[in-house]
Design a protein around this nucleic acid. Sequence first.
DNA 1: CATGAATGAGGGTTCATTCAT
DNA 2: GATGAATGAACCCTCATTCAT
Lengths: 201, 201, 201, 201
Amino acid sequence: MRSPERREQIVETTLALVAKYGVPGTTLTRIASAVGVTTPALYAHFANRREILLEALEVLIRRRSTAHHLVTEGAPLERLREIGHRHSELVASDDTSVLALFEFIAAGPEEGLRETLGERHLGLLDELARIVEEGQEDGTIIRGLDPQQIAWMMVSRAWTEDIAALMGISHAWNQERSNQMLELILDSIAAPTREETPPTE
Amino acid sequence: MRSPERREQIVETTLALVAKYGVPGTTLTRIASAVGVTTPALYAHFANRREILLEALEVLIRRRSTAHHLVTEGAPLERLREIGHRHSELVASDDTSVLALFEFIAAGPEEGLRETLGERHLGLLDELARIVEEGQEDGTIIRGLDPQQIAWMMVSRAWTEDIAALMGISHAWNQERSNQMLELILDSIAAPTREETPPTE
Amino acid sequence: MRSPERREQIVETTLALVAKYGVPGTTLTRIASAVGVTTPALYAHFANRREILLEALEVLIRRRSTAHHLVTEGAPLERLREIGHRHSELVASDDTSVLALFEFIAAGPEEGLRETLGERHLGLLDELARIVEEGQEDGTIIRGLDPQQIAWMMVSRAWTEDIAALMGISHAWNQERSNQMLELILDSIAAPTREETPPTE
Amino acid sequence: MRSPERREQIVETTLALVAKYGVPGTTLTRIASAVGVTTPALYAHFANRREILLEALEVLIRRRSTAHHLVTEGAPLERLREIGHRHSELVASDDTSVLALFEFIAAGPEEGLRETLGERHLGLLDELARIVEEGQEDGTIIRGLDPQQIAWMMVSRAWTEDIAALMGISHAWNQERSNQMLELILDSIAAPTREETPPTE
DNA sequence: CATGAATGAGGGTTCATTCAT
DNA sequence: GATGAATGAACCCTCATTCAT
């Protein structure tokens, strides 16, 4: 197998294993045997275990970022809502890869992945903040609000969803609750429209 | 050293190590050497590593629960605000033990601690929900709202604070931002008072 | 509890454990917890683990020796037969203590019990040989035979029974087969009687 | 070193150690250091300690079975005698591997090797019984006897020889005694020939 | 007579990694 | 690009034993 394909295969396999066993449980032995090669073979494509995990993390971040950019239709407020909904659906579905992103925190400080994860998350926040700014520019979102603040609250909701799933208490923090939180956030930033607040003559 | 003290010492040491190295990095060797005994000595007080971690987790939960109950003054709304503030201060301080609670998710699914953590968290949620209910009973919090929903959002904010600290991006999600989110939540549930909504002439 | 009773209790417990787990599996922890005391308490009655096992072995040998002496009725040949039968019945029964004697070989050379076991077994052989000699003196057993040889064959049969039981193949070497071997041995040593070999006149 | 050779070397070393230290005393550390590798290296060739021991046991059984099949000359009765003699010589020699087979009972019930040993022993018994049957077919062994019974008695004699050696009392159960037992068994099954039993006029 | 606390030695096993092939 | 063989470090855990109390 060609190098690029093999690399991708290794990363994909790693993601699946991370979602299933967590980062500490994603050993080279497991990766290798799932890929169908021997352990040392992995070293032909990556310098060490950490590099594999980092690349997997990168892919995950890129994927979530793409998810943000894929939502292009509608007003900024609508797009934020859509992004929120899609996340909820992913978590609810069997696609564990969403949770995998969160598992990387689970690596523990020793793996040295948290810092990278932090940086990347800031990037994701920026993307959300950018949408908020668009809304402020076209007047659909209240000006004067801090876009970063909004972005953080969106992320906060998403994380809660993830964590609840990881802890196995999704029954208590279900999609409906998550939705309500989303609406609270969006309501608090939506600029008043003519229809909603008729001029008090 | 007598057993009860030793047990406590082991647990306390474990908590410190979990905060520093994460759960996977909290090995028996590290615990023992930090306590100042040999590894097998730990087995005189706990059946195995898992039991030590579980007890540490229990202590952590109990501690946070106590933090809830310690806030007894003021109206329910005020107490929720106070609980929120205290959490922020803890995270901001060097007392890493708050984060330790979160590290237990980091153990990975294989350690079998997540389920326990989930159950205990539901308990913490109930405590917060109870305060909300009190507010609803005395009319300071809007009736008709789901107390669990409010509790979850409070927890959501706290988790975000934790995660940001774990990822080393507390500079971006600082105490001020956290506060703003808290106020958003509390504002949304506060029952309108005479002063706030002057009678429309 | 008084020392002598405690000693006996420890030894009895040890025998039961040896029968169940084998000598290597009979740890001090197991003995102590079965007796209902702590491990160091055993050292108040025995110098070390080896001493406990040795005493247990001694008891076992004494018990088998007693079994030989209990059979006092009938001609020597009959007594040998009876001894053989009783052994078969013991093995067939659930009284695992017979097998325990054999487990001591299982201790491995490192436990240093085999030599003791060997010596004691020579004693048991002598007892059987003595019965043979009696028979030779009163003319019911062929003179000129080596009593030790007969004793060994008796023991050989008994051991085979034990080993088959230990290996879990008693279904193949059952009581009937064991009996047939016993009869072969006894037949070969029985002195011809008048009735059996009538004069060919 | 290549895997097949290494495997064989490990097994051979294990056999020597089992003969010397017994099964419980045959630790991975000992095996590894005797082989000249580190402990984890053994795991490249066997799944775990038990697999090593099982393979060693298998080799031992195969070897004894081969010993049976190597004796092909002479009448069945003669072959049984020869097999018996060879066993005696092996035990008398310094080739401790014969005893190793017996050490596997010594593993104690916990190692889970006894059952395997039992099964394999039944196979060995069948081989001996087969020879007896041949003798019955060509008329040199009394018909009507149960071949399995004879096989068991042959094995019984061999085991006794082994055990005596293990216990260090070979001086009491020496080759001569063992021989006498063998002759007793063979005599009891030999079919009468013309020469031996002259026709009664 | 017994305990509670601790130890040193060693058990089997897994891990990430290296290197010659 | 991949393998097979091996390593060193570390893992959790159990053992028999000691000693102050």
